[in-house]
Amino acid sequence: MRTHQKLCLSLLASTSTLLISSNLLAAPVVLELDYDIPVQQNQVAFVPFAGDSVLSPIILNDLSKTELKVTSKDLPQQPRSISELSGTLPVWQSMGIPYLVVGSTRSNRGKVVTDYEVIDIKSGRVIEGKQSLTADNNKESMRYAGHVIADKVYELITGIPGDFSGRIAYIEEVGTGKEKVSRLKVMDADGENAKTITEVAGSIFSPSWSPDGNRIAYSVQRDKSYPVIYVQNVSGGSASALTPFSGSNLSPSFSPDGSKILFSSSFEGSADIYEISASGGKPRRITNWPSSEVQPSYAPDGKSFVFVSDRSGFNKPQIYRYEFGSGNTTKVSNSGYATS
């Protein structure tokens, strides 16, 4: 038997349940040098947080996987906050590293509170003030807290939100043919903390996250049966069959508010796009062309969706957009072959 993994194109942005607060009063200017020092762009000095042995390695690992060049070695001191740089800021400025991340952890009523700062070395100011985050004192919560802090540090430095606290849904298959077993799994964005959500004898296709990150819709095809779409709660429990129709039911896509699901199905003939309540019920047929229409995906505003159709000719798929308000369909792609 051999094991291989297929990563689906389904990334879940972070859905933080942790408390993040910001003191918007930045620390006063401590000192600025009035001569030029070469600045090493994208360089970040990271001081492991005082009192912590769990968060710092996670944060350092996350940031090291970006364009930022992070170092925690050969630093002139191990400060916990901007106040401890008084008198030593010129030494940090002489290094030419533009950003410094410092922090510390403390206990508060059974929880772990992390205070941290991202310091602009040249000006000696804390970017957006001191940040605080509170997490439960257990392995899973602390791991998630580390990702959330890495998200914020990355955003404060680059201006772009990080997604280290996101999750990836993927399919792991073992065996072939009638012996195939498929597992729908979820892992942290850094590849750690993998968990099996469900296991079936057969194949699992196209998992899709709900906007709130609590559910995943996916298709299951067992031996000698049509693919059926299921909706599963990520936290556990049994899956519910959404499309028990005699046809190929594939490619579920949640609406932005999570109340509806688009999918493709051939239970009324050629494959068309349908919309159905996320809790089940009677589907509404949206496309009705003699060609095959598959792989629907809602636009972020929910006012339209894109899909793939071969109405231009066999083996010549193109991408189209359907507008809910007008019912109009327009071709989006212009190449000879466009899909997914």
Score class of each variant (00 low, 15 high):
D120E: 14
L184R: 14
L262Y: 01
I229L: 12
T66W: 10
Y218L: 07
V332S: 08
I97G: 07
E84T: 11
K139N: 09
S104V: 05
R167D: 10
V91H: 12
V148W: 09
Q77F: 13
S206W: 07
S22M: 06
S335N: 11
V101E: 04
F307C: 07
Y230R: 13
R125A: 00
V181R: 11
K195W: 08
I261K: 08
G129N: 12
F324I: 07
V91N: 06
V234C: 07
H147K: 15
K282R: 10
S86T: 10
S259F: 09
V30S: 11
V294C: 11
L75V: 02
R215G: 02
L19I: 09
D74T: 13
R109W: 00
S304L: 09
K65F: 05
S240N: 08
S94K: 08
S255P: 11
E32A: 00
Y144Q: 12
N288L: 06
E293W: 03
T71D: 00
G103R: 06
P283L: 03
G110I: 07
P207C: 08
T17V: 00
S277H: 11
V306K: 15
V231S: 04
S251E: 13
S291G: 13
D188I: 09
S53D: 01
V220L: 11
P227K: 14
G281T: 00
P227S: 01
K260C: 03
L242E: 03
G124L: 09
S265K: 09
S240Y: 04
V200T: 04
K178L: 00
S309Q: 15
S266Y: 08
S104K: 15
R222Y: 00
L12A: 12
D74M: 12
V30D: 07
S14N: 10
R80Y: 00
V231N: 00
T196C: 03
L184F: 10
S251R: 15
G175V: 00
V102A: 10
S312H: 08
D163Q: 15
S141A: 06
S266D: 05
T198A: 08
S16I: 00
G313C: 02
P98D: 09
V332D: 12
R285T: 05
V54L: 07
G258H: 04
M142A: 15
L18D: 09
G327R: 15
G258E: 06
Y320K: 06
R183W: 02
E155Y: 14
S309M: 06
P57D: 01
K152P: 00
S21Q: 13
T176P: 08
P211D: 05
P211M: 12
R2F: 10
W289E: 07
D188R: 14
G302L: 09
A241G: 04
T3P: 01
D34W: 03
S225L: 13
S326I: 13
P317T: 02
L33R: 13
S266G: 01
V200Q: 06
V112W: 09
V234K: 09
T66R: 07
L250Q: 02
D272I: 07
G325Q: 15
I229H: 05
E155A: 11
L9E: 01
Q295Y: 02
E32K: 13
I171S: 14
E140P: 13
R284G: 01
L63A: 03
F324C: 12
G124S: 11
V101C: 01
V44P: 02
L31C: 01
R222K: 11
G110W: 06
Q78V: 05
